[in-house]
Amino acid sequence: MEPKPIALKVLDVISIILLGVATYLALVFAPTEAVMGQVQRVFYFHIGTAWVGLLGFLLAAGTGVAYLVTKDAKWDIIEVAAVEISLVFFLITIILGSIWARPVWNTWWTWDPRLTTAAITELIYIAYFMLREGIEDPDRRARFGAVYTLIGGVSAPITFMVIRLFRTIHPVIIGSGDPGAQGTFAMTGGMKVAFFFALFTFTVVFVDLFWNRIRMGNLAAKVEQLKLNVMQ
């Protein structure tokens, strides 16, 4: 087994430090929002994790196409890494968002375009892993995975548009009204620092996790190959 690259080890440490600083900035340094109070602090990590989720989602759809075109197994490994990270981070985003929404919108959940699309994307990802689970042949698994991420990658934005249309035609569905209007606020200097730092931190965390996950995928592929060799 090849040792973990030094650069990756350094990146791991940097990620942990950055996460610590970002937590400090979000929870202590940033000023308390006047109307919403302490709960608004969730926002910094909420956007950060959502950004990572979106990044993973775009990468997954792109690598799906790349795999189908090139048939290179490395794209499959990258795709799995992207989907897995995106799955986890969208889940964190949804949970953080609900914590914020409960006091601000007075409900844990509304069928807003963003919330619904995030939830359906999670379901698509879960279906993706169930699909992969059921296929033994690695080649076919990769092909089907790529086809499914491509379909999901096209369908999720359409879902977003559909639900937006749904809301513009029927504006009064949920009592709390437009989420853009409920709970917006202007960011002051300290808030901006915490916000952009969180965004930066999560980008680094994403790169770190992505790298680790790809490395793990490569090792897993190697193990699978060795197992096949032993069986023959």
């Binding site: 879960i126 279906a127 169930m130 699909l131 059921g134 296929i135 076919r140």
Partner: peptide, 16 residues
């Protein structure tokens, strides 16, 4: 073409 066959289709199809 998967092991889980019939149970898988609705799970794949409904979200998309």
């Amino acid at each position: 073409q998967t092991r889980t066959r019939d149970v898988l289709l609705p799970i794949l199809l409904f979200p998309v």
